[in-house]
Design a protein around this nucleic acid. Structure first.
Length: 769
DNA sequence: TTGCCACAAATTTTT
DNA sequence: TTTGTGGCAA
C-alpha cells in the first residue's frame, strides 16, 4: 500500500502520536509488547486511524477486537473523534463475541443455526447440564453439573469436540458422554453458549473447502487485537484465520498482565506469536506514562522475579513521588479502619473519591471494608458483582421472550412454566421431558402429545393446555407487536405482574421496578434502532442483552471504587489501597508442587494491582484475619519481600503494636517486630471513635462489636425517629436516605439508596441505620 | 407442591 | 461468615 496521505478532512495531527509511527507500517504481522501504563489501547486506535486515513484501507475491512464492551466502546469513541462518525461506524470494532454474532448473522445458514438462535449464559448452561445428567442417569452428587461443565468448557476453549476429548480416567468418560449430549441439547434448542459463538465462526473460517469459508477469510484486510495476552486457543486461531492470506495482523498485549489463565487464556499465544509469524515486527513499549517512579520501581521489583517472561524494562520519566506504604495491621477490622481513615484524610484534602480505589484479592474481603466505610460515611461503590440482566425477575421476563421467539429453548420454558404458579410442578415437567425424549421434540412441542396420553391427571392436563395456549397467543402477538408491546403484554397476560403485585413486600416492589426498567431498556433499544434505521426485533434485543456487560450506572455522587484486583485491570487511579497482602490470600495458593504456574499468575496479578496507581500506593496486610468464619494467622505475602527497600516505607498500626507487645513478651520475637518504627503516624485503633455527625441527626453510642447500629434502644423505626434525611437500612438495598415520608396506616417512604437509586418502600421494611 | 432445615462449600469473571 | 442445595415433612 502506498504512503499517499492526501486525505480528506481527517485530523492528521491526531495521528502524530509518539508511538504511532512505530506501528504505522501497514502490512505484515506486528506484535506490540506494551508495558503497563505505556498507552496500549492508544496504539491500536492510532494504527487503525492511520490505516484508514493514510493507507486508504476501507473501514469496513478493518477488524478491531477487544475483550470487554467497555474497551470496545472506548476505542470506537476515540476513532469517532479522529475519523469522524461516518467512517468510524463502518469499522468492525467489538468484543470477540459481538463480532462473532455479527458474522453468524451473515453466515448462519452455513453454520447450521436458525436466525432466531438464543445465547445460553452460565446458568442456562448449568440447567442444560443438569437435564443431561438426569437423562443419562448420572449421579449429580458425584458429578456436579458445574464440574462437568467446567471440563467441557476447557475442551471447547481449545476448540476440541467430544471426539477429541482425551480420556484419562472415569471422570473423562462421563464428561465425554455429557459433552455429546450437551451439544445435542443446544442444537435442538437452537441455542449456542458463549464458546459456540466463537467456534461456529472458527469452523467456517478454517474450512478450506467451502466458498463461504474463503469469503470469510478474505473479508478483512487488517485484524487488530487488544489485550492479546488474554486470548485463548480458539480466539487465537480465529484471528489468525480471519487475517487470511494478507496476514495483516497486529496484536498488542503484555504478558506480565496475563491474569486469566484459569479462564482459558493462554500466555503461550503471545509468546508463541513470533513462532507462527516469524517475520512479525516486534515492538516494545517500555515507557510508563502513568505512575510515579516509586510505583513503577515497586512493580518492577515484583515482576522481575517472574520466571519465563518476555524480557523488558519498564521505566518512567515521572517524578519519584512518595514511597509505597506497607502497613502491617492487627486484623481485618484494623486494616479496614486504617484504610478508611486514610481515605477520609485524602478526601478531606479535596481529592475526589473517584480517584481513590480500594482493591482486594477476593470478594469476601469487601464486607468489613464496606461496614467501616458506611460507619464513617465514606461514599463507596463496589465494582463488579451481579448484572442487572441477571436478576431473577429480569431473567424470567427475558425467558418468556426467548421461548416466544424460539420455542425450542427448553431451559427457558422450564424457567417460566410455573412462574407464576400454575400448578405445573417438577413431576409434570419430568413427564413432559420424558415425552419430549420419546417424541424427539422440544418440551413445548411435547405438551400436545402428553395431554393426549393418559400419564397425567385431567387437572394437570388442563393446566398444561392453558399454558400452551398462553404461549401460542404470545407467539401470534409477536408477529405484529413491537418488542416493547410484546414484553408488556407478556407481563400482563402471563399473570407475572399480578403475581408480583400480590406479594406485598419491598422485595416484590423492587422486582416490579426492575421489570419497568427492563421495559425501559427495550424501549431504548427500539429508539436506537429507529435512529439507525433498522427494524427492532425481539431476537436482536435478546442477543444484545446476552452480550451486554453490567450497565455501569454512572454514579451521581463521586464514590470510592472498591473492587477485586481482577476487576481493576485496565483502570488507573491517583491513590490505590491494596489490601490483604498475605500468604494464603494473595497469593491465594501456590505453595505446593505443581502450582508454580498458579503462583506465577498471582505474581502477575500483584503487578497489575501495583501498576494501577498513579501517585500513591498503600499496601496493607494483617496479623490475623477472620475469613470464611475462621481466624487465620498470616505471614506477610512473599510479594512484599520483592519490593525494593528504597521504594517502600513500612508502618504498623497502633493496634498491631499492642498485639506485638503482648505476643513478644511470651514468644520469641516475631519477624515483623522490626517493622515498628518510632513515630509512625498511625492513628488506627480497634474501637473507632464516633465520626462527626451532621446536625439534625441523632447520634447514639455504637455497640463495640459494630453490629447493627440502632436508633436509641433499637428495634423498629418508630414514627418519631424518622423524617426526611434520616438514614435507614434495607436488607436488600443497604444504606439509604429518606427523601419523603407518607404517613398513614402503612406508612411508606421514598428512599434514595446508594447504588440502587430512588425506591418507594414501606417503612416497616426499613431498619434504622 | 411448597416450605423449611441441615449441611457443605467457599478464588478470580467477561461474554 | 455467607450462600446455595438437597432432603424431607406438611
Amino acid at each position: 500500500m502506498s504512503g499517499d496521505s492526501a486525505q480528506s478532512g481527517i485530523a492528521v495531527d491526531a495521528l502524530n502520536e509518539p508511538q504511532s509511527d512505530a506501528v504505522a507500517q501497514a502490512d505484515g504481522p506486528v506484535i506490540v509488547f506494551a508495558g503497563a501504563g505505556s498507552g496500549k489501547t492508544r496504539v491500536i486506535t492510532y494504527r487503525i486511524a492511520n490505516l484508514v486515513a493514510t493507507h486508504r484501507v476501507p473501514p469496513y475491512r478493518l477488524l478491531g477486537v477487544t475483550f470487554t464492551n467497555k474497551a470496545a466502546q472506548e476505542m470506537k469513541h476515540r476513532l469517532e473523534r479522529i475519523l469522524g462518525e461516518g467512517m468510524a461506524r463502518e469499522l468492525w470494532i467489538g468484543t470477540f463475541h459481538a463480532v462473532c454474532v455479527r458474522l453468524i448473522r451473515r453466515y448462519h445458514e452455513q453454520m447450521g443455526l436458525n436466525r432466531n438462535f438464543v445465547i445460553y449464559d452460565d446458568s442456562d448452561q448449568k440447567a442444560v447440564m443438569t437435564r443431561v445428567l438426569k437423562e443419562l442417569k448420572i449421579d449429580e452428587r458425584r458429578y456436579a453439573p458445574k464440574k462437568v461443565l467446567a471440563r467441557i468448557q476447557r475442551e471447547k476453549q481449545e476448540a476440541r469436540g467430544p471426539d477429541e476429548l482425551s480420556i484419562d480416567g472415569y471422570f473423562d468418560e462421563i464428561a465425554k458422554r455429557c459433552f455429546e449430549a450437551y451439544q445435542r441439547h443446544l442444537k435442538a434448542a437452537n441455542a449456542a453458549d458463549f464458546s459456540d459463538l466463537l467456534l461456529h465462526v472458527l469452523h467456517l473460517a478454517e474450512d478450506q473447502k467451502s466458498e463461504a469459508g474463503a469469503h470469510l477469510r478474505s473479508r478483512f484486510s487488517h485484524v487488530l487485537v487488544d489485550e492479546f495476552q488474554d486470548v485463548n486457543q480458539v480466539q487465537y486461531r480465529l484471528v489468525r484465520a480471519l487475517a487470511g492470506e494478507g496476514r495483516n495482523i497486529c496484536v498488542v498485549g503484555d504478558d506480565d498482565q496475563s491474569i486469566y489463565r484459569w479462564r482459558g487464556a493462554d500466555v503461550r499465544n503471545i509468546r508463541g506469536f513470533t513462532r507462527d509469524f516469524p517475520d512479525a515486527k516486534l515492538i516494545k513499549l517500555e515507557q510508563n506514562y502513568r505512575s510515579s517512579g516509586h510505583v513503577v520501581s515497586a512493580a518492577l521489583g515484583v515482576i522481575r522475579c517472574a520466571t519465563d517472561r518476555q524480557p523488558k524494562e519498564l521505566w518512567t520519566n515521572n517524578p519519584d513521588g512518595e514511597p509505597v506504604k506497607v502497613v502491617h495491621t492487627a486484623n481485618e477490622r484494623d486494616e479496614a479502619a486504617h484504610v478508611v481513615g486514610q481515605v477520609r484524610a485524602l478526601i478531606a484534602t479535596g481529592i475526589s473519591p473517584r480517584e481513590i480505589a480500594v482493591f482486594y484479592r477476593v470478594h469476601a474481603q469487601s464486607r468489613v471494608l464496606e461496614e467501616v466505610m458506611r460507619g464513617q460515611d465514606v461514599p463507596y461503590q463496589i465494582i463488579g458483582g451481579h448484572k442487572f440482566f441477571d436478576r431473577a425477575e429480569v431473567k424470567d421476563l427475558l425467558a418468556y421472550l426467548r421461548v416466544i421467539v424460539n420455542p425450542q429453548s427448553d431451559v427457558d420454558l422450564v424457567r417460566i412454566i410455573n412462574k407464576p404458579a400454575r400448578r405445573i410442578g417438577a413431576r409434570t415437567i419430568e413427564h413432559l421431558a420424558a415425552t419430549a425424549l420419546t417424541e424427539g421434540c422440544s418440551l413445548y412441542a411435547a405438551i400436545g402429545p402428553l395431554c393426549a396420553s393418559t400419564r397425567i391427571g385431567a387437572a394437570t392436563k388442563r393446566h398444561l393446555r392453558t399454558f400452551g395456549e398462553l404461549l401460542g397467543g404470545f407467539m401470534r402477538a409477536a408477529e405484529t407487536a413491537s418488542p416493547r408491546d410484546l414484553a408488556e403484554e407478556v407481563l400482563e397476560e402471563s399473570g407475572y405482574g399480578r403475581w408480583l403485585k400480590g406479594q406485598d413486600n419491598a422485595e416484590a416492589d423492587a422486582r416490579l421496578d426492575n421489570l419497568q426498567e427492563l421495559l425501559g431498556s427495550i424501549q431504548e433499544y427500539e429508539e436506537d434502532q429507529s435512529y439507525a434505521d433498522e427494524e427492532p426485533t425481539v431476537a436482536d434485543f435478546l442477543t444484545r442483552v446476552s452480550l451486554a456487560a453490567d450497565a455501569d450506572n454512572l454514579a451521581d455522587v463521586p464514590r470510592v471504587p472498591m473492587m477485586t484486583v481482577h476487576a481493576a485491570k485496565g483502570l488507573e487511579f491517583d491513590h490505590v489501597f491494596l489490601t490483604g497482602l498475605e500468604e494464603g490470600l494473595f497469593p491465594v495458593r501456590g505453595q505446593q508442587a505443581g502450582e508454580e504456574e498458579e503462583l506465577e499468575e498471582e505474581r502477575r496479578l500483584a503487578y497489575v494491582a501495583i501498576t494501577r496507581a498513579r501517585h500513591q500506593l498503600t499496601i496493607t496486610h494483617t496479623h490475623t484475619r477472620m475469613i470464611y468464619g475462621q481466624v487465620r494467622y498470616n505471614e506477610p505475602s512473599r510479594f512484599l519481600g520483592d519490593l525494593p527497600a528504597r521504594d517502600q516505607e513500612r508502618l504498623v498500626t497502633e493496634a498491631l503494636r499492642d498485639v506485638s507487645r503482648s505476643v513478644s513478651s511470651s514468644q520469641s520475637s516475631p519477624p515483623w517486630r522490626e517493622l515498628i518504627r518510632a513515630g509512625s503516624p498511625q492513628r488506627s485503633q480497634a474501637p473507632t471513635p464516633p465520626p462527626p455527625r451532621p446536625p439534625g441527626e441523632r447520634y447514639v453510642e455504637r455497640d463495640p462489636d459494630g453490629e447493627d447500629n440502632t436508633f436509641g434502644d433499637g428495634g423498629d423505626l418508630d414514627q418519631g425517629a424518622i423524617r426526611a434525611g434520616t438514614k435507614v437500612r434495607h436488607t436488600k438495598f443497604g444504606l439509604g436516605v429518606i427523601r419523603q415520608l407518607d404517613e398513614g396506616l402503612d406508612p411508606a417512604a421514598t428512599v434514595t439508596f446508594s447504588g440502587w437509586g430512588v425506591k418507594r418502600i414501606k417503612v416497616r421494611y426499613l431498619k434504622p441505620a
